[in-house]
Write a protein that binds this DNA or RNA. Sequence first.
DNA 1: TGCGTTAGACAGATTATCTGTCTAATCTGG
DNA 2: CCAGATTAGACAGATAATCTGTCTAACGCA
Lengths: 147, 147
Amino acid sequence: MPTDRQEPNLGILLFVAYRALEQRAHDAVIAAGSTDITLAQARIAARIGPHGTRVSDLAEQARVTKQSAGFLVDQLEAAGYVERVPDPTDRRARLVRLTARADRVVKTANAEVERVLAEWADHVGADRLRRVHETLLDLREITDPWR
Amino acid sequence: MPTDRQEPNLGILLFVAYRALEQRAHDAVIAAGSTDITLAQARIAARIGPHGTRVSDLAEQARVTKQSAGFLVDQLEAAGYVERVPDPTDRRARLVRLTARADRVVKTANAEVERVLAEWADHVGADRLRRVHETLLDLREITDPWR
DNA sequence: TGCGTTAGACAGATTATCTGTCTAATCTGG
DNA sequence: CCAGATTAGACAGATAATCTGTCTAACGCA
């Protein structure tokens, strides 16, 4: 139960902004033809690094359990967006990597995010938006347990 | 598919901060004894205004469909946290209101949110945090379709 | 070597969410 | 004042997302 309503508190504002950005990116991906990607899958896929990422790490970053993350990776794999390769540094682990097909989708999403951020900068000022970014970056040190 | 990873972009940062706040509030509620409230229910309950709110409005604000919101309100009602009363201004509509039981829970959640915000202010500075709040408030004008 | 930890898979259950449809009430333009 | 369009919200059914619990293999430290 995050908080009460009345005047929009910071929690609600963070949520609204996040969802707006995520939704725009997802809509753009759908519009570009990848109609088979769900938001939950996208949340996972968006956190895959350029050299591959472990399911456990994806789970932590997306704030879901390993099981949920593994399930979503299964779906992304079946759809051809990701592949699992052995982790050379740890034989227990496997790295989830984006395929070429997914790269195109990520590019589409990133382009839309850029567009949205430009709109935001237009509305509140590029300097203010940059300060929000910097402050949240510092905040991450205490809100983000891992890293 | 919000965006790629590498350095944390604004989308991820908004998400991390939001989830941290929400989780702390939810944990506090659980710790205070209301172990029967799920996060999804809390997201809905947190958006109920002091004079009651329509299911449709709750749905819009929480970014879920009316059906989902109605379902969650059903659960909250069964657990005794909310009640539905007729909307005197529109006979089609009903207002969802918090019960006395829920008020205590909301109080607990709000107190925890205050604590978290104080920690955040400690870490990044109260002035910077306030500026984030103000900027996001302005941003809401374009990220929030209704209102 | 041996024990505690970690990665991730499997099974099963629950929760959350959506699309589609329906009724009643409200609003709006002629 | 009425007819059509819209809105509130319920119901049904399906799907998606998520969790808890358990299990095996691999790691890592003492």
